[in-house]
Every structure is written in structure tokens, then in C-alpha cells.
Computed example of a mutant assay.
Amino acid sequence: MTKVLVVGSINMDLVVGTTRFPRLGETLFGERFATHPGGKGANQAVAAARLGAQVTMIGRVGDDAFGQQMTATLKTEGVDTRWIGVSATAATGIAAITVCDGDNAILVVPGANGELSPEHIAASEQAFAETDIVLAQLEVPLATVEAAAALAQKHGKPFILNPAPAARLPIELVGKVALFTPNEYELAVALDGKPENWKALLAMLPGKVVMTKGREGAYFTDASGALQHQTSFPVEAVDSTGAGDTFNGAIAAFWDLGLAAASRYACAAGALSVTRAGAQGGMPTRAEVETFLDNAA
């Protein structure tokens, strides 16, 4: 069982469905409302846990009902939450999502996620010493991600970075990352390039990037720089929310199999996740992924 340490965001998603988006200053009646556990960090932690990894999470929530609910949800999924701190000054992060005819408008308030600091990372050093691999995203401060990368390097643990939301990355951080997991746009922003030049960007970091490309699946280069392609798996999509986070959780959970095999499992897990509604709600188990791959072979 791979031990995965996730450093990242914990949000509550507040989802409103409506027939049209409101105009500026307008009040509309929505059709439905739901709350869903979210945040890239929490999503990826749940994905890895369902796929059989032993998962620990470092994050921060507020001293409120959402924070209590999010922590309880992670515990229920088998995630070790002892390193999740509680802020006395900031609320739990939220994403306010308005959905209309398949489109959405999202407003994220980081809340306690923005308080996750390098000092919190340093205080959690034991978690880095005990894990096999570290997985992070960019929904917490960049300085905190850099601190996590440095601590992973100190303990000789591979550091996987999902560079989302897209951001230009410092060269020092790039040097500490074992694997980047961007989409086409995120890769271009991270390396200060152009999306249409993604093959050249992949070649810049041989063996260190696996790029998701929607229905095409994933592309990566091996250690020699040769381009490799993992095709996607055809499914009937219901809800694509959380597919990328499922992919990342799977890459971490199956890291010990090598990048090619991990990418195959990740594409399969991502495909399965879109066949059910919800980000965490659609995430498959390891048994489901293995059965899916057996039938796809």
C-alpha cells in the first residue's frame, strides 16, 4: 500500500442550479442547491484513498460547521487528518458555483486555505518522513508549496505537483518536482510557453511531466525524451467535475508501478469518475478500476 501525503486545499462547494445566469443587480430564483465536499487537495486525497493508498493530508479549515464536515468526510474516506489545522480567524474555504445549461460560473473564497503556511509545513515534518510520496496543488500559497517541495526533497520523497490553478513556477521549484501533472494550458503557463508548443514543453522536462489532454487522454515523455501517449477510455459522461483530481490521486496511488502504468490507471480512473455525479461522489475504488481495465483489455 503506497503512502501518499497530500498538501492542499479543503473547500466546501456550494452549488446552485438555475435556468439562466443573473444579470448585474438582478435577483433570480434558483432551481436547486447542494453542498459537496471539494477543494483540489481534499479531492485528490479522497481519490488516492479509494484507490488503495494510505493517505495523510496537510491542510487547514475554519472553526465552523463546514470545517467539521469536511474533516469528518475525509476521516470517513480513511484519510489521516491529524495534520489538518483549525484556524481561529478564517472560515473554511468555499467555492460558490452557479450552474446553467452545462456551463458554470465559480467564485472561490480561499479562507483558511490561504493561511496554510511554510511554518505549518515545518511543524508537519514527521508526515514527510513517514510517507512514500508527496502530492500538492496550487490552491494554497506558493510559498507553502515550495516549503513542501523542499521538505520532500530533504527526506528523499518524490514530489508530484498538479500546477492548478495555472501559475508561472519559479525555476527553483521546478527543479524539486519529480512529476508535473498539468493540462495543456497549465503546462504553458507554468513553463512560460505557448499551449500549441506543448510537445516542445514536454521535451524540456523528460520523464517529469504527464499532461492531460481531455478526450485524447494523457501525454508524457520517458527518461530519454521520447513522446508517449496513453489513450483515454470511451465512457458515457455524466459529470466531468473532479476528473482531473481523480487522475492526480491515481498517479500518486500507482506511482510505484512507473509512469506508463500509473498513467494508464489514472486515465481509467478519470474515465470512470465522469460516469457518476459529483467530484468526490464519482471517484472509483481500486477494484472498480481494475475490473474496468480487465474489460477494456
Rank of each mutant, 00 (worst) to 15 (best):
Q69D: 15
R60M: 15
T19R: 13
L28E: 03
L116G: 03
Q126V: 14
E172I: 02
K75V: 13
P118Y: 01
K176E: 09
A277I: 08
A188G: 10
R286Q: 14
A261W: 07
L116K: 05
N183D: 13
R82S: 14
A266Q: 01
T291M: 08
Q137A: 11
V235W: 06
P22F: 00
A167Y: 11
Q280Y: 09
N183S: 08
F180I: 01
V6C: 12
E172K: 08
G244A: 12
L107T: 06
I106C: 03
E31W: 02
P163V: 07
I171H: 09
M204R: 15
M283H: 04
W83R: 14
A129E: 15
M204H: 08
G281V: 05
A164C: 09
T212E: 07
E288W: 07
Q126W: 11
S232I: 04
P163N: 08
V4S: 06
D103R: 00
L257Q: 15
G281M: 07
A164Q: 11
S117W: 09
L191W: 14
P234G: 03
L179E: 13
D239M: 05
P158H: 10
L74T: 06
P22W: 00
I58V: 15
I171L: 09
N295P: 00
A150C: 05
M1C: 04
E115C: 02
W255S: 10
